[in-house]
Design a protein around this nucleic acid. Sequence first.
DNA 1: GCTGGTAATTCGTGCTGCGAACAACTATGT
DNA 2: ACATAGTTGTTCGCAGCACGAATTACCAGC
Lengths: 145, 145
Amino acid sequence: MSLVTALVRSSFLVDAAYTQAGRTHGLTPQQGQLLCVLMARPYGMGELSGALGLAKSSLTGLVDRTAQHGLVRREDDPRDSRAVRVALTPEGTELAERFYADACRRIDALGDGLDAEQRGALAALLGRVVLDNEAPVVFVEPGRA
Amino acid sequence: MSLVTALVRSSFLVDAAYTQAGRTHGLTPQQGQLLCVLMARPYGMGELSGALGLAKSSLTGLVDRTAQHGLVRREDDPRDSRAVRVALTPEGTELAERFYADACRRIDALGDGLDAEQRGALAALLGRVVLDNEAPVVFVEPGRA
DNA sequence: GCTGGTAATTCGTGCTGCGAACAACTATGT
DNA sequence: ACATAGTTGTTCGCAGCACGAATTACCAGC
Protein backbone atom coordinates (compact mmCIF):
# COMPACT_ATOMS: atom_id res chain seq x y z
CA MET A 1 0.00 0.00 0.00
CA SER A 2 1.35 3.42 -0.91
CA LEU A 3 2.02 6.03 1.71
CA VAL A 4 -0.69 8.25 0.29
CA THR A 5 -3.32 5.54 0.45
CA ALA A 6 -2.31 4.54 3.95
CA LEU A 7 -2.53 8.14 5.12
CA VAL A 8 -5.92 8.74 3.55
CA ARG A 9 -7.44 5.55 4.81
CA SER A 10 -6.02 5.81 8.30
CA SER A 11 -7.32 9.35 8.42
CA PHE A 12 -10.73 7.94 7.60
CA LEU A 13 -10.43 5.53 10.50
CA VAL A 14 -9.40 8.22 12.94
CA ASP A 15 -12.26 10.41 11.84
CA ALA A 16 -14.75 7.62 12.29
CA ALA A 17 -13.45 6.80 15.75
CA TYR A 18 -13.54 10.44 16.74
CA THR A 19 -17.05 10.93 15.40
CA GLN A 20 -18.23 7.79 17.12
CA ALA A 21 -16.74 8.89 20.42
CA GLY A 22 -18.51 12.22 20.10
CA ARG A 23 -21.77 10.56 19.32
CA THR A 24 -21.78 8.52 22.48
CA HIS A 25 -21.40 11.74 24.44
CA GLY A 26 -23.85 13.82 22.47
CA LEU A 27 -21.15 15.85 20.78
CA THR A 28 -20.57 16.66 17.15
CA PRO A 29 -16.97 16.16 16.02
CA GLN A 30 -16.51 19.92 15.84
CA GLN A 31 -17.83 20.51 19.31
CA GLY A 32 -15.66 17.69 20.58
CA GLN A 33 -12.64 19.26 18.99
CA LEU A 34 -13.50 22.59 20.50
CA LEU A 35 -13.70 21.05 23.96
CA CYS A 36 -10.37 19.28 23.47
CA VAL A 37 -8.62 22.48 22.49
CA LEU A 38 -10.10 24.33 25.44
CA MET A 39 -8.96 21.66 27.89
CA ALA A 40 -5.54 23.27 27.84
CA ARG A 41 -6.65 26.84 28.53
CA PRO A 42 -9.18 29.47 27.41
CA TYR A 43 -8.79 30.79 23.89
CA GLY A 44 -9.88 33.91 22.09
CA MET A 45 -12.07 33.58 19.03
CA GLY A 46 -9.33 34.53 16.62
CA GLU A 47 -6.96 32.17 18.31
CA LEU A 48 -9.49 29.35 17.97
CA SER A 49 -9.87 30.22 14.33
CA GLY A 50 -6.18 29.54 13.85
CA ALA A 51 -6.09 26.43 16.00
CA LEU A 52 -9.06 24.79 14.31
CA GLY A 53 -8.35 26.07 10.82
CA LEU A 54 -11.75 27.76 10.48
CA ALA A 55 -12.89 31.21 9.45
CA LYS A 56 -13.65 33.47 12.38
CA SER A 57 -17.24 33.72 11.30
CA SER A 58 -17.59 29.95 11.48
CA LEU A 59 -16.57 29.99 15.11
CA THR A 60 -19.26 32.33 16.33
CA GLY A 61 -21.89 29.72 15.58
CA LEU A 62 -19.88 26.78 16.86
CA VAL A 63 -19.23 28.51 20.17
CA ASP A 64 -22.87 29.61 20.31
CA ARG A 65 -24.17 26.09 19.89
CA THR A 66 -21.69 24.65 22.34
CA ALA A 67 -22.49 27.38 24.84
CA GLN A 68 -26.20 26.67 24.47
CA HIS A 69 -25.47 23.17 25.68
CA GLY A 70 -23.79 24.67 28.71
CA LEU A 71 -20.35 23.33 27.89
CA VAL A 72 -18.54 26.53 27.15
CA ARG A 73 -18.77 30.18 28.17
CA ARG A 74 -17.67 33.51 26.79
CA GLU A 75 -15.75 35.56 29.28
CA ASP A 76 -14.68 39.17 28.87
CA ASP A 77 -11.02 39.74 28.31
CA PRO A 78 -9.97 42.24 30.98
CA ARG A 79 -7.14 43.52 28.75
CA ASP A 80 -9.20 44.20 25.66
CA SER A 81 -12.89 44.92 25.80
CA ARG A 82 -13.36 43.84 22.18
CA ALA A 83 -11.97 40.42 22.87
CA VAL A 84 -13.51 37.39 24.41
CA ARG A 85 -12.06 34.37 26.12
CA VAL A 86 -13.88 31.14 25.46
CA ALA A 87 -13.57 28.79 28.43
CA LEU A 88 -15.00 25.48 29.49
CA THR A 89 -17.76 25.48 32.09
CA PRO A 90 -17.51 22.90 34.89
CA GLU A 91 -19.93 20.67 32.96
CA GLY A 92 -17.86 21.23 29.83
CA THR A 93 -14.68 20.28 31.63
CA GLU A 94 -16.21 17.09 32.89
CA LEU A 95 -17.65 16.12 29.53
CA ALA A 96 -14.43 17.05 27.76
CA GLU A 97 -12.47 14.71 29.98
CA ARG A 98 -14.84 11.85 29.41
CA PHE A 99 -14.98 12.45 25.69
CA TYR A 100 -11.25 12.85 25.44
CA ALA A 101 -10.60 9.60 27.28
CA ASP A 102 -13.10 7.79 25.10
CA ALA A 103 -11.66 9.17 21.88
CA CYS A 104 -8.15 8.23 22.99
CA ARG A 105 -9.24 4.73 23.85
CA ARG A 106 -10.88 4.24 20.46
CA ILE A 107 -8.02 5.70 18.47
CA ASP A 108 -5.43 3.85 20.47
CA ALA A 109 -7.33 0.64 19.72
CA LEU A 110 -6.67 1.19 16.02
CA GLY A 111 -3.11 0.12 16.73
CA ASP A 112 -4.06 -3.06 18.53
CA GLY A 113 -2.60 -5.20 15.80
CA LEU A 114 0.88 -3.76 16.39
CA ASP A 115 3.35 -4.76 19.05
CA ALA A 116 5.00 -2.23 21.32
CA GLU A 117 8.01 -1.75 19.10
CA GLN A 118 5.93 -1.19 16.00
CA ARG A 119 3.70 1.26 17.83
CA GLY A 120 6.72 3.20 18.89
CA ALA A 121 8.12 3.27 15.38
CA LEU A 122 4.80 4.37 13.93
CA ALA A 123 4.38 7.10 16.53
CA ALA A 124 7.88 8.38 15.83
CA LEU A 125 7.47 8.45 12.05
CA LEU A 126 4.02 9.95 12.12
CA GLY A 127 5.09 12.41 14.79
CA ARG A 128 7.87 13.52 12.50
CA VAL A 129 5.39 14.14 9.71
CA VAL A 130 3.16 16.11 12.05
CA LEU A 131 5.99 18.31 13.28
CA ASP A 132 7.45 18.80 9.81
CA ASN A 133 4.15 20.13 8.62
CA GLU A 134 3.35 22.22 11.64
CA ALA A 135 0.07 20.49 12.23
CA PRO A 136 -2.12 22.63 14.44
CA VAL A 137 -2.44 21.50 18.02
CA VAL A 138 -5.92 20.09 17.95
CA PHE A 139 -5.15 17.42 20.48
CA VAL A 140 -3.09 17.81 23.58
CA GLU A 141 -0.62 15.21 24.59
CA PRO A 142 -2.29 12.56 26.74
CA GLY A 143 -1.25 12.97 30.33
CA ARG A 144 -0.77 16.69 30.02
CA ALA A 145 -4.43 17.64 30.27
CA MET B 1 4.53 12.21 20.82
CA SER B 2 2.04 9.45 21.58
CA LEU B 3 0.59 7.30 18.85
CA VAL B 4 -2.87 8.69 19.48
CA THR B 5 -1.73 12.28 19.15
CA ALA B 6 0.25 11.52 16.04
CA LEU B 7 -2.72 9.81 14.46
CA VAL B 8 -5.15 12.60 15.26
CA ARG B 9 -2.86 15.36 14.13
CA SER B 10 -1.77 13.62 10.94
CA SER B 11 -5.41 12.99 10.20
CA PHE B 12 -5.95 16.71 10.50
CA LEU B 13 -3.17 17.32 7.99
CA VAL B 14 -4.56 14.84 5.51
CA ASP B 15 -8.01 16.35 5.80
CA ALA B 16 -6.70 19.82 5.21
CA ALA B 17 -4.73 18.72 2.16
CA TYR B 18 -7.72 16.88 0.77
CA THR B 19 -10.05 19.81 1.37
CA GLN B 20 -7.57 22.18 -0.19
CA ALA B 21 -7.21 20.00 -3.27
CA GLY B 22 -10.97 19.91 -3.64
CA ARG B 23 -11.21 23.62 -3.30
CA THR B 24 -8.87 24.29 -6.18
CA HIS B 25 -11.09 22.13 -8.39
CA GLY B 26 -14.43 23.46 -7.17
CA LEU B 27 -15.22 20.31 -5.23
CA THR B 28 -16.31 19.84 -1.64
CA PRO B 29 -14.39 17.10 0.17
CA GLN B 30 -17.44 14.85 0.05
CA GLN B 31 -17.95 15.33 -3.64
CA GLY B 32 -14.27 14.68 -4.18
CA GLN B 33 -14.49 11.49 -2.21
CA LEU B 34 -17.49 10.41 -4.20
CA LEU B 35 -15.62 10.94 -7.45
CA CYS B 36 -12.61 9.01 -6.16
CA VAL B 37 -14.73 6.04 -5.19
CA LEU B 38 -16.48 6.05 -8.55
CA MET B 39 -13.19 6.11 -10.43
CA ALA B 40 -12.97 2.37 -9.91
CA ARG B 41 -16.44 1.50 -11.16
CA PRO B 42 -20.12 2.50 -10.84
CA TYR B 43 -21.71 1.93 -7.44
CA GLY B 44 -25.27 1.54 -6.22
CA MET B 45 -26.57 3.94 -3.61
CA GLY B 46 -26.53 1.38 -0.83
CA GLU B 47 -23.07 0.33 -1.79
CA LEU B 48 -21.90 3.93 -1.65
CA SER B 49 -23.49 4.26 1.73
CA GLY B 50 -21.27 1.46 2.99
CA ALA B 51 -18.14 2.69 1.22
CA LEU B 52 -18.44 6.25 2.48
CA GLY B 53 -19.87 5.42 5.88
CA LEU B 54 -22.96 7.56 5.41
CA ALA B 55 -26.66 6.97 5.85
CA LYS B 56 -28.47 6.16 2.63
CA SER B 57 -30.55 9.28 2.97
CA SER B 58 -27.42 11.41 3.10
CA LEU B 59 -26.32 10.07 -0.24
CA THR B 60 -29.37 11.08 -2.19
CA GLY B 61 -28.49 14.73 -1.72
CA LEU B 62 -24.77 14.28 -2.29
CA VAL B 63 -25.37 12.47 -5.56
CA ASP B 64 -28.00 15.05 -6.52
CA ARG B 65 -25.66 17.96 -6.02
CA THR B 66 -22.78 16.26 -7.77
CA ALA B 67 -25.06 15.29 -10.64
CA GLN B 68 -26.27 18.87 -10.94
CA HIS B 69 -22.69 19.84 -11.62
CA GLY B 70 -22.63 17.28 -14.40
CA LEU B 71 -19.98 15.07 -12.81
CA VAL B 72 -22.05 12.03 -12.07
CA ARG B 73 -25.10 10.31 -13.48
CA ARG B 74 -27.74 7.88 -12.25
CA GLU B 75 -28.16 4.91 -14.54
CA ASP B 76 -30.83 2.25 -14.28
CA ASP B 77 -29.72 -1.13 -13.10
CA PRO B 78 -30.94 -3.62 -15.70
CA ARG B 79 -31.07 -6.41 -13.09
CA ASP B 80 -33.19 -4.58 -10.53
CA SER B 81 -35.57 -1.84 -11.48
CA ARG B 82 -35.47 -0.36 -7.98
CA ALA B 83 -31.76 0.03 -8.05
CA VAL B 84 -29.55 2.66 -9.55
CA ARG B 85 -25.95 2.71 -10.63
CA VAL B 86 -24.13 5.94 -9.99
CA ALA B 87 -21.42 6.49 -12.58
CA LEU B 88 -19.03 9.24 -13.57
CA THR B 89 -19.85 11.30 -16.63
CA PRO B 90 -16.99 12.04 -19.05
CA GLU B 91 -16.58 15.44 -17.38
CA GLY B 92 -16.64 13.74 -14.00
CA THR B 93 -13.99 11.28 -15.06
CA GLU B 94 -11.73 14.03 -16.23
CA LEU B 95 -12.20 16.13 -13.12
CA ALA B 96 -11.80 13.10 -10.88
CA GLU B 97 -8.45 12.33 -12.41
CA ARG B 98 -7.21 15.85 -12.02
CA PHE B 99 -8.49 16.10 -8.46
CA TYR B 100 -7.11 12.72 -7.56
CA ALA B 101 -3.66 13.56 -8.87
CA ASP B 102 -3.68 16.86 -7.04
CA ALA B 103 -4.79 15.30 -3.76
CA CYS B 104 -2.12 12.62 -4.08
CA ARG B 105 0.53 15.20 -4.74
CA ARG B 106 -0.44 17.23 -1.69
CA ILE B 107 -0.71 14.28 0.62
CA ASP B 108 2.47 12.74 -0.63
CA ALA B 109 4.19 16.03 0.09
CA LEU B 110 3.35 15.61 3.77
CA GLY B 111 6.09 13.00 3.87
CA ASP B 112 8.71 15.20 2.26
CA GLY B 113 10.74 15.30 5.45
CA LEU B 114 11.23 11.53 5.37
CA ASP B 115 13.78 9.60 3.35
CA ALA B 116 12.79 6.67 1.17
CA GLU B 117 13.37 4.09 3.84
CA GLN B 118 11.34 5.95 6.41
CA ARG B 119 8.51 6.45 3.96
CA GLY B 120 8.46 2.77 3.26
CA ALA B 121 8.40 1.92 6.95
CA LEU B 122 5.60 4.40 7.62
CA ALA B 123 3.55 3.13 4.71
CA ALA B 124 3.96 -0.45 5.91
CA LEU B 125 3.01 0.28 9.51
CA LEU B 126 0.09 2.51 8.64
CA GLY B 127 -1.02 0.07 5.97
CA ARG B 128 -1.08 -2.62 8.57
CA VAL B 129 -3.32 -0.48 10.78
CA VAL B 130 -5.63 0.20 7.87
CA LEU B 131 -5.97 -3.44 6.95
CA ASP B 132 -6.34 -4.58 10.56
CA ASN B 133 -9.26 -2.24 10.96
CA GLU B 134 -10.89 -2.94 7.65
CA ALA B 135 -10.84 0.68 6.65
CA PRO B 136 -13.31 1.27 3.85
CA VAL B 137 -11.84 1.71 0.41
CA VAL B 138 -12.25 5.41 -0.01
CA PHE B 139 -9.12 5.78 -2.05
CA VAL B 140 -7.89 3.48 -4.73
CA GLU B 141 -4.28 2.54 -4.97
CA PRO B 142 -2.37 5.05 -7.11
CA GLY B 143 -1.56 3.57 -10.46
CA ARG B 144 -4.60 1.35 -10.47
CA ALA B 145 -7.11 4.00 -11.46
C1' DG C 1 -8.38 63.56 18.26
C1' DC C 2 -7.90 60.95 13.61
C1' DT C 3 -6.75 57.11 11.39
C1' DG C 4 -5.66 52.46 10.58
C1' DG C 5 -5.70 47.89 12.11
C1' DT C 6 -7.89 44.21 15.08
C1' DA C 7 -11.80 41.31 17.56
C1' DA C 8 -16.06 39.53 16.99
C1' DT C 9 -20.59 39.35 15.15
C1' DT C 10 -24.31 39.30 11.72
C1' DC C 11 -26.23 37.89 7.46
C1' DG C 12 -27.15 35.12 3.50
C1' DT C 13 -25.95 31.00 1.02
C1' DG C 14 -24.96 26.31 0.17
C1' DC C 15 -23.50 21.85 1.83
C1' DT C 16 -23.70 17.76 5.32
C1' DG C 17 -25.73 14.28 7.91
C1' DC C 18 -29.27 12.02 10.40
C1' DG C 19 -33.68 9.32 11.39
C1' DA C 20 -38.40 8.32 10.31
C1' DA C 21 -41.62 7.43 6.99
C1' DC C 22 -42.61 6.06 2.45
C1' DA C 23 -43.08 3.94 -2.41
C1' DA C 24 -41.55 0.68 -5.47
C1' DC C 25 -39.90 -3.44 -6.29
C1' DT C 26 -37.66 -8.35 -5.60
C1' DA C 27 -37.53 -12.62 -3.31
C1' DT C 28 -39.35 -16.13 -0.48
C1' DG C 29 -42.39 -19.51 1.45
C1' DT C 30 -46.46 -21.92 1.18
C1' DA D 1 -50.43 -17.84 -7.51
C1' DC D 2 -50.19 -14.92 -3.73
C1' DA D 3 -49.27 -12.87 0.65
C1' DT D 4 -45.31 -11.62 3.23
C1' DA D 5 -40.88 -10.09 4.15
C1' DG D 6 -36.93 -7.71 2.95
C1' DT D 7 -34.46 -4.57 -0.28
C1' DT D 8 -33.53 -0.04 -2.74
C1' DG D 9 -33.88 4.63 -2.97
C1' DT D 10 -36.30 8.86 -2.05
C1' DT D 11 -38.57 12.51 0.65
C1' DC D 12 -39.05 15.36 4.59
C1' DG D 13 -37.83 18.01 8.58
C1' DC D 14 -34.25 19.12 11.37
C1' DA D 15 -29.77 20.66 13.24
C1' DG D 16 -25.22 21.67 12.32
C1' DC D 17 -21.18 23.39 9.59
C1' DA D 18 -18.38 26.60 6.79
C1' DC D 19 -17.63 30.44 4.02
C1' DG D 20 -17.22 35.49 2.49
C1' DA D 21 -18.80 40.20 2.76
C1' DA D 22 -20.25 43.70 5.51
C1' DT D 23 -20.61 45.73 10.13
C1' DT D 24 -19.78 47.29 14.97
C1' DA D 25 -16.83 48.12 18.64
C1' DC D 26 -12.60 48.94 20.17
C1' DC D 27 -7.23 49.57 20.70
C1' DA D 28 -2.96 51.95 19.29
C1' DG D 29 0.07 55.17 16.94
C1' DC D 30 0.74 59.54 15.34
